[in-house]
Design a protein around this nucleic acid. Structure first.
Lengths: 322, 322
DNA sequence: ATTTTATATAGATAACAATCTATGTAGGGT
DNA sequence: ACCCTACATAGATTGTTATCTATATAAAAT
């Protein structure tokens, strides 16, 4: 019984014959001619080496071996239908897995998207990596993830990007700070105080420093802390002032206030970045689709800046060129 | 995903690649060249429409879709291996089903073979039909069974036969019968008494009557009973005398004795009959093989007459001409 | 006995599977 | 920079599958 003489097609035909009980009827159902089905059957019998059907009362009934082959064929064909379903689910982004890498600051917002997405697609497994900008760039170079979230994309030579959220940087001070009462403050006035800064390699710090440079300002005393949370708590405790993403502040923040510094907030946007030299997993694509459609329901309207449709259009265009 | 582009061979190759983790190694294992395997893989990827493998650290790992295909392939190939095992069992006569039709008298002996056979081959289902010779002939004409047991075969045009057991017919009388003391009796002396006979259509009756005819004798008073048991009990109760198969008598039969009639026992043999125009089921063939080998262990030696090897040789010769 | 219906066989063909050899290319290791 | 190994592509060949039309045969129905 050489397995090479079996084809799925042959099994399909056989199943149709057993199910209908006649060769001609099976041929009709399969949109084949009767001799075609007869031949297939003959080949199958040869391949098995046993009679498979016997004719009684004008109908074909499977023999012992025939019944077992019928069972086997049904199972095998069924298994392939299942596989096909699995593929469809995979393609529809309903199942599968993807990984996403976030810059630290984005971790305050992304769960608002990831949570509902995983409710809607419970079969999709997501891995989230978090680190500062420099670490994310390394992951990006090494192609370790499906999606990346940056505020400023790396070279777009091998990547496509789509903005989805405003990320304003604001100056913050502890409640009761002397400058708090003022209506308008100049950044230069702040620089006399100690500034709490993120580590080098952080996107927030990079943005802040390049803004300062544009303004021709330089930092005075600083204190470096490698965490937005630590800085927020530090500011609240009077350790100094800071420039932070507004997303870092909790909805209610009675112990901290935002200073009305001229030129602030520093505007930036988070974007989803996709490597264009690497095929995007269906699950990741599914997440982007979900984000495009549900972003407005998941984040505060004032931060909205949804340019994901354009990204998706670009991706799907690529997809269609095989 | 057109199922026609999948072949079992393709799946075999794919499984080998996933299992070994490299194309070249799989090629070696399959005794193929590396490009052949590469090509197969390419075709499979096309057929599925998704990438199946990705290379990491110099080894190939299945993607999401690839893993599922691997699972499906293993199951499918496994199912076919099972089917192959099933076929082997069927061919070896270890499983399957057959039916056998016995003339009444043989029912006293055949269980001695059928019992041990079904111990040895518990997966084989046997159906036993019992009736008188005429009924068996009808079943034979209609090709209703795989095996038949007759003492005299029907026309051997469409059948092969093999003797396996002596079936001597003896004259019996109740214990204490006047003729019992005699050393030698003539059948003519018995015919004065009432003879208990089986129904017309019975093999025992047919044999007895044709023997009588040869001897130029005719029956006197008779009484007809359609069962060997009834006749045996009838004789024991003094209802008359009878000529019966010796097999009908229980091992101990204190109330009945065998008369030393000249010319008796009437010798006949039971035979297994197989239609030669109908393919014999493996299970039935298995039973014949079993009978050929174990007959001596299953029946009393004095009845042995095993010519089954010749029958089997004839059958297997046919088998080999397809 | 004749017609209808179901199945099998023959002969033909286009497409494809399965395989090879030869050659090109890319990723790791020294 | 170079080499080895693994993988991919190209081109060719052989055999098989899948399918058809036309026709013969067997079985059932009238």
């Amino acid at each position: 019984m050489n397995i090479r003489h079996f084809t799925f097609r042959l099994l399909q035909v056989y199943v149709a014959v057993v199910a209908s009980g006649t060769v001609s009827e099976a041929a009709r159902r399969l949109h084949l001619t009767q001799p075609t089905v007869s031949m297939q059957l003959k080949r199958l019998v040869e391949a098995v080496g046993e009679p498979l059907l016997e004719s009684r009362q004008g109908r074909l009934f499977p023999t012992e071996a025939g019944s077992e082959l019928y069972r086997a064929s049904r199972e095998v064909l069924g298994r392939f239908d299942d596989f096909d379903d699995y593929l469809s689910a995979l393609r529809g982004g309903e199942r599968g897995r993807f990984s996403i890498a976030l810059v630290n600051t984005a971790q305050y917002v992304l769960p608002r998207l990831l949570g509902p997405h995983s409710q809607a697609f419970p079969e999709v497994e997501v891995t989230v990596h978090i680190g500062n900008r420099r670490q994310m760039l390394t992951r990006f170079e090494r192609q370790e993830d499906d999606l990346y979230v940056f505020s400023h994309p790396p070279s777009l030579a091998h990547a496509k990007a789509g903005r989805f959220l405003r990320n304003p940087l604001v100056a913050v001070a502890p409640r009761g700070h002397p400058l708090a009462a003022r209506e308008r403050i100049d950044m230069s006035e702040l620089l006399g105080e100690r500034m709490l800064l993120r580590e080098p390699g952080s996107a927030t710090r990079m943005l802040f420093e390049s803004w300062l440079q544009e303004q021709g300002l330089t930092l005075g005393r600083t204190l470096q802390m490698a965490s937005n949370e630590a800085i927020r708590v530090g500011v609240a405790s009077g350790l100094g002032l800071a420039v932070l993403s507004e997303h870092v502040l909790p909805p209610e923040h009675p112990d901290i206030l935002i200073l009305p510094v001229a030129g602030l907030p520093i505007e930036s946007h988070w974007q989803f970045i996709v490597r264009s030299d690497r095929r995007l997993s269906h699950a990741a694509l599914g997440f982007l689709r979900f984000a495009a459609g549900h972003l407005d329901a998941c984040v505060e309207p004032r931060f909205l800046s949804n340019e994901l449709e354009a990204l998706l259009a670009g991706l799907e265009r690529d997809e269609s060129l095989h």
